[in-house]
């Protein structure tokens, strides 16, 4: 396939669950793409649908009553509706995933090395010793001290940071072109988080992998991602290059989210600019803009669901830029 096509191209992806006789829309018409060796951040609060989006791409949602529509082209191959059998050959080899809690993400009764070997041996015809050699090599590359010994240890014997490194080693073991990282540092201490983010940032150079980084932390996005997509209540609020989004957010939600983070430097505000209220549950989602009930700039035209419109290098699901009243740039947007 030609190299100018994105690695992953998601168009109008929707996921709904059936509950008490009604279809509950979790994710609605989400579109985005991930280029080669790019890190795309998906940000959102709990219930925004960011994890569900990732799980749908991985084909890991198979609960009865789930409807997935739209399209997700991975290297030209359609993932929506793909059989579980075909997914199996992609998962772990072409697309792999790491999760939030590295404690519970490993099976407790096998050694770390055994679990990494397992993934390698499932996808490749390679001897036990060959797989182990690669496991040890990977663990070492991920900055795990004494990788031979660590490979023979059980998950509970390792610290959170080491477990997450081992998890990343396992995810990379078959050289996937896409790594989906679902809140990979949320359970970790801040000094260890910095190490893991550093590791993720360098993957594209060392392994040529693209990363889809799911997080609730705008700080993590700023430190790690090339482009960002902000989800609110299952819909795309904004997407674009991280630099542009942080300098001048196009969607009031993005702006408010950034403002509500207490600053670490500069003057301390008396009160934090906060967003009143809470995101609506999926069944009470407004038919217009989902953020309207909490938005400072809400007006009549917000009662109609806004479509994504181009705003500089960004795409924004808000009428403000089109109406000629874009949000002001952030003073602290770039430093």
């Amino acid at each position: 396939m030609p190299d100018d096509l994105p690695l992953l191209e998601v168009r109008d992806l929707s996921v709904s669950f059936r509950s008490r006789g009604r279809d509950v829309p979790i994710v609605e018409n989400v579109s985005f793409s991930v280029d080669r060796q790019e890190i795309l951040g998906i940000v959102g609060e709990s219930g925004s649908g960011k994890s569900v989006t990732a799980m749908a791409i991985m084909g890991l949602i198979d609960a009865p009553g789930v409807k997935i529509t739209g399209s997700a082209l991975f290297r030209g191959q359609e993932l929506v509706g793909l059989s579980q059998r075909s997914f199996r050959h992609l998962r772990g080899r072409e697309i792999s995933m790491i999760f939030q809690d590295p404690m519970t993400a490993f099976t407790p009764v096998y050694t770390i090395g055994w679990q990494i070997d397992e993934q390698i041996r499932v996808h490749e015809a390679i001897s036990r010793t060959g797989a182990r050699a690669r496991t040890v090599q990977l663990l070492g590359d991920m900055g795990v001290p004494d990788p031979e010994r660590t490979a023979n240890r059980y998950p509970h014997q390792l610290s959170g940071g080491l477990r997450q490194r081992a998890m990343i080693a396992m995810a990379l073991s078959c050289n996937p072109s896409l790594l989906i990282a679902d809140e990979p540092t949320t359970a970790l201490d801040v000094t260890v988080q910095a190490q893991i983010l550093d590791l993720l940032r360098n993957l594209r150079h060392n392994y040529g992998s693209s990363v889809l980084l799911i997080t609730h932390d705008m700080g993590v996005v700023a430190e790690t991602c090339d482009r960002v997509m902000v989800l609110y209540s299952g819909r795309v609020a904004e997407r674009g290059p991280a630099e542009a989004v942080f300098r001048q957010p196009g969607h009031p939600y993005t702006g408010a989210l950034l403002d509500s983070i207490p600053p670490l430097t500069g003057p301390r505000p008396e009160r934090l600019p906060s967003i009143a209220g809470a995101p609506p549950p999926p069944l009470e989602r407004p038919s217009g803009c989902a953020f309207a009930p909490r938005c400072h700039y809400v007006h009549e035209s917000c009662m109609i669901l806004p479509s994504l419109i181009a705003y500089g290098t960004q795409d924004v699901a808000c009428v403000l830029p089109a109406e000629g009243h874009p949000l002001p740039p952030r003073a602290a947007g770039a430093a």
Partner: peptide, 24 residues
């Protein structure tokens, strides 16, 4: 080190910082 490790919602060009090694 603790302050340096906090990810801030600010794009930093050529961000390079001293990372603490290892775990607690």
């Amino acid at each position: 080190a603790l302050i340096a490790a906090v990810p801030e919602p600010v794009i930093r060009k050529n961000a390079s910082r001293t990372l603490l090694r290892g775990d607690v």
